Simulated scan of single mutants.
Amino acid sequence: MTDDFHKPVRRPSETFDRLYAAEDPAEVSRAAHSTAAALLSRVREERDPDAVDRLVGFTSRHGIDDIAELWSHSPAKSLPGSLWRLYLLQLSIHDDPATAALLYDRGRTELRSSDAVVAGAPVPAGPGELVALIDTILRGAFQGDFAVALDRAAAFCRVQASGATHLADDYERTEPHRSTELTTRALRLATYATDLTAAARLWHREALT
């Protein structure tokens, strides 16, 4: 999904300490897992609404680079990998809420499952409603049931993947390049949905690290 969504990067002078300067992949992996666990546990223990607000709005203020440096290379079925996917999903909606709403609405009407209900968007869901929804899902990861947040994000991805797939079919004859882009996006969203669902199950078993 990284290729699909672009945002100017504004690098903060502080927020995430540079806990790894080493080139050793093992050190990078340990830092990613330790920072994700420490961040999540600290916010949950302190129950500070301001801290949650800062984390939910982090990419809007600072871009995605610092989070990417921390978590982007982590396995999908890990705590840092899950947080990374939640932030990428949020960024995709904030970057282009109109397209997100188009994909979601098409997917909601085409998908024969409860995913739209699980995701929790209103009907109809315009750009503003989807921005609010994804922020709510990310907020739930920091102050609610983490597995529920992952399951909602996964459902959201499946609805959007369905919408992208059906729109790709619509464009196949008239705009093949656009059709290919949408098909690629659908595949990535579907992969994210699978990863997030698996991570939610691991969290329930206290095995997501």
Score class of each variant (00 low, 15 high):
67 I>C: 10
1 M>H: 06
6 H>G: 07
190 A>I: 01
41 S>Q: 13
187 L>C: 05
65 D>Q: 07
164 A>R: 09
93 I>W: 00
20 Y>D: 13
104 Y>E: 07
146 F>R: 12
180 T>A: 13
42 R>T: 13
205 R>D: 14
77 K>I: 12
155 A>D: 09
132 A>Y: 00
141 A>E: 02
131 V>M: 09
111 L>C: 03
166 H>M: 12
125 A>N: 04
156 F>L: 15
168 A>I: 04
130 L>Y: 06
114 S>E: 13
56 V>N: 06
209 T>F: 01
32 A>V: 11
177 H>Y: 04
139 R>T: 05
4 D>E: 11
172 E>K: 07
189 L>K: 06
29 S>T: 14
141 A>P: 04
23 E>A: 15
33 H>A: 14
115 D>E: 12
176 P>G: 05
45 E>T: 08
190 A>T: 04
51 A>N: 06
153 A>G: 09
58 F>R: 02
208 L>E: 08
95 D>E: 10
170 D>I: 10
36 A>W: 03
83 L>K: 01
197 T>E: 09
110 E>W: 08
154 A>H: 05
12 P>I: 01
184 T>M: 05
3 D>N: 14
115 D>I: 03
90 Q>D: 02
60 S>L: 09
163 G>R: 04
168 A>E: 00
34 S>I: 07
67 I>L: 15
113 S>G: 15
95 D>P: 05
154 A>M: 02
35 T>G: 08
175 E>R: 11
14 E>A: 13
77 K>T: 14
14 E>D: 09
81 G>M: 10
43 V>W: 03
184 T>S: 13
94 H>T: 12
198 A>F: 06
45 E>S: 12
49 P>N: 03
89 L>H: 07
62 H>R: 02
80 P>K: 11
13 S>G: 13
7 K>C: 06
156 F>K: 11
6 H>L: 14
36 A>M: 06
170 D>Q: 14
50 D>I: 05
187 L>P: 06
65 D>M: 02
126 G>E: 09
204 H>Y: 11
44 R>D: 07
139 R>G: 00
73 H>K: 15
200 A>F: 02
112 R>D: 14
46 E>L: 15
133 L>A: 13
11 R>L: 03
129 E>V: 07
15 T>P: 00
172 E>P: 03
2 T>W: 03
19 L>S: 11
191 T>H: 13
103 L>Q: 11
159 V>Q: 09
151 D>F: 01
192 Y>A: 15
69 E>I: 08
25 P>Y: 06
73 H>L: 14
35 T>N: 10
160 Q>N: 11
36 A>S: 04
33 H>W: 05
89 L>K: 06
47 R>F: 07
2 T>G: 09
205 R>P: 00
43 V>Q: 12
